[in-house]
Design a protein around this nucleic acid. Structure first.
Lengths: 210, 210
DNA sequence: ACTTAAACTCAACACGCGTTTATATTCGTT
DNA sequence: AACGAATATAAACGCGTGTTGAGTTTAAGT
């Protein structure tokens, strides 16, 4: 099955897939909506209307709301790069670089932050999103901490812990909207949070287990 | 208006309010459901069925889904006490006591943790919940830190920051379900997180601003 | 010209939701 | 016994949802 009529020269017949401009428009609208309103509150009809497209076209390109959401959620490479480079350089200042990386990822350019916000908002309601966010929290810092200190069994735990705490900070600022935290500027937050994260990722010897 | 038929002795007529057993059953079922499934995924019909009650009775006792949710979310006094007492004692060990208080509040007895879980899960979708959680994050630690250190302008910020981070930890463990963090036992988490929180709430002098 | 498939439009379906209305039953009070 | 409020039951309403299918138009191939 799935056989396609071919000419003698083996080329497919019929109209060729055009510019994917419509698909792109839908994807853009979906990313914005999911990031702003969350998974449940976002409707396919609304996305379609935002993209000036019929709702059934959305279903044609992406096969369901879940698949559309999954397509929106993937973490942009530019964000991954942000975290990778955060670990370059000496232990000294590690906490600050990591905190900055988190804040920048979630508060930087819309193309970067929207998928992350969608992931964050969706994680409570959508299984796909919570798995993805769990992966993110669990593994993102691992590369950075690996080989940095004596490789105890709790290096991974430390990485996950720091990550979860920083995600909590972002949630409070951007999702819940705690006034005190939303209002505070990046510099103040970095100043306070950086030493704490440093303490977790590269603790002084007297706090370590082994 | 709202006048009620009264007898000559001024007492109201008609059947008196009975035991509130049904209302209580609904409230219990709702608390469990909201905590487990979140606001949107929880339906009134399901709550009613859990409580062996007709859905329209739920509407009679609580006037809407939102009001029912609000009734469920209030933070239990026993939890508030937990935080109050966490700040008794010396600066030394403050971080550990606070971390323990958070973990215990969210992982202790169901009567304590369910409203908090409902609040957490609801905060993404329900305005009421996010306001309540914002209040919680912003103010819970304030009492504890007040008067503890020189009362800089950023004492409140430090309190909110620590709170948001610990909430992030709880979200990762209990809502998102990051395997690494869910699996880890309380002792390990306290050991790693306590110094970081201590660093935020009662930082060494060289990290402070004023 | 004719065929094929992609892109698009329109209308409808089935379902579950929060909520309302109407009606029946219980039961303390007069 | 009669009343009236508290409580319970049953059926339905209106709406928005994700999703489907049928039909039309457009573009690329022979």
């Amino acid at each position: 099955m799935n056989a396609q009529e071919t000419t003698s020269s083996g080329r497919p017949r019929g109209r060729r897939p055009g510019t994917q401009s419509t698909r792109k428009a839908v994807l853009d609208a979906a990313r914005k909506r999911f990031a702003a309103d969350g998974f449940t509150a976002t409707t396919i009809r609304r996305i379609a209307s935002d993209a000036n497209v019929d709702a059934s076209q959305v279903m044609q390109f992406f096969r369901s709301k879940d698949e559309l959401f999954a397509a929106v959620m993937s973490i942009p490479p530019s964000v991954l790069g942000l975290f990778d480079t955060a670990f370059d350089g000496p232990d000294n200042g590690l906490g600050e670089r990591v905190v900055r990386a988190y804040l920048q990822a979630w508060e930087g350019a819309p193309e970067d932050s929207e998928p992350l916000m969608a992931m964050l908002r969706g994680a409570i309601v959508n299984n796909n999103a919570s798995t993805q966010l769990a992966d993110f929290i669990q593994s993102r810092l691992l590369d950075g901490t690996r080989g940095r200190a004596a490789d105890d069994s709790d290096t991974a735990l430390r990485a996950g812990l720091a990550s979860s705490m920083l995600v909590g900070l972002v949630i409070s600022r951007r999702v819940i909207g705690v006034p005190l935290l939303s209002r505070a500027d990046t510099a103040a937050i970095v100043r306070i949070a950086a030493p704490a994260i440093q303490e977790i990722l590269a603790p002084p010897a007297n706090n370590r287990t082994s």
